[in-house]
Design a protein around this nucleic acid. Sequence first.
RNA 1: GGGGGAAUACCAAAGCGGCCAACUGGGACGGACUGUAAAUCCGUUGACUUAUGUCUUCACAGGUUCGAAUCCUGUUUCCCCCA
Length: 429
Amino acid sequence: MNDFIAELKWRGMIQDMTAGLEEHIQKGQAAAYLGFDPTADSLHIGHLVGVMTLLHFQRSGHQPLALIGGATGMIGDPSFKSAERNLLDKATLDQNIAGIRKQLEKFLDFDAEASNKAVLVNNYDWMSEFSFLEFIRDVGKYITVNYMMAKDSVKRRLEEGNGLSFTEFTYQLIQGYDFYYLWKNKGCSIQLGGSDQWGNIVTGTELIRKKEGGEAFALTVPLITKADGTKFGKTEGGSVWLDPEKTSPYAFYQFWLNVSDEDASKYIRIFTTLDRETIENLEKEHLEAPHLRALQKALAKDITILVHSEMDYEIAVKASNILFGKSSLEDLSTLDERTFLQVFDGVDVIEMDHASFDNAESALDLLTLDQTIFKSKGEARKMIQGGGVSINKQKIENPSNKVETSLLQDQYLLVQKGKKKYFIIKVLS
RNA sequence: GGGGGAAUACCAAAGCGGCCAACUGGGACGGACUGUAAAUCCGUUGACUUAUGUCUUCACAGGUUCGAAUCCUGUUUCCCCCA
């Protein structure tokens, strides 16, 4: 059994833990749980720190439990959120839970014969039948309001004066009861969570102690930050999701590849399972030749394969070369149609019939046929003269020459406006 | 209430009767360089079928003049000074 705590320590994944946790774990196989809020049908990379913690936990020979907050998701956690949450209905929740479960299976082994196989639990299962009377007697009785009010998360909401409903105020009791329930029925003695969860987790250990004199532990992971102070996990397009439908594997790969040098060392420890020696070697390599960005590449590779697949990774690399490298028409032609469309997923596609394509007398005509690429010929001409327009990776030299390049897959033209804006013209036959 | 000044393109700011679609700086967008970074350098930046072309612009409405962003009158808004 590997040393779980030591592993997390060198990876910089521990924010805080309760006293005695290390000794407790060393005694033998333990079980720990981490909760996920089913607010969407996919996890995003903000959840990944927690997921990785569970993964390390299982790899160290312990049993990870992933708790999906079917019940708590209906309530809303007030922790460090400024406004009251909208409640989700049961149908949406069920759908979200299914999506999240599928993603967790990539990280955790739910099928193992071993005693430490991962287990997915849903607190809706034990909360839904809980009557209010039972709840206030069996749970509420043990925790004082004074104690609950003292929590940072609650205090802050009260100070802001935005109002805190009784429902959200109760949240910590529900989460506390979850911990108690898992402790009692699943032998789960540890709760993992983000640093914002500390207060809620401790309410659980408190409940276990008061109700049964039991011992339970907490471990929180740090909030992931970025060196430039902007929010981690967001791009211009919003959150970075694990679901390939929401964030394509290519975009996902790009997100990690674009991480800054300062952040890369930190992230590679947290988000990959690469061992210490490998990472330190990569860092050395990166220091000697920073422009090669060995760290970012390793980080992006490892995590893309983990979350998506080896093949998705290869396509992402290929796509990156085409979009940013010095690729040529030949490289483009080697892509099959499916891959081509995947690489340019999200790019505007302009459809035109074959006759219009043949009749376009010049590059100018072709690019302004539809107003999407350029609004006017004047605009198009200016940018072509500035050297900013390519078709199928070939720069257009003269705006009034006819476009002579061959169609990709007999139907596509890849138009590049500036360095980063792409359009696909699909010629219908 | 009286006196003075100002309103210009995305922003700032020149222009003060023809050479003005309007200097310059910032921003934005393109290009080169680079690490898909930063810095730097170069180009574009009212619209249009690129034309030593046409059209629409310098708060708004009128006027003077062959000709106005520039002069005059009125209107609106803003700033300053005196009450």
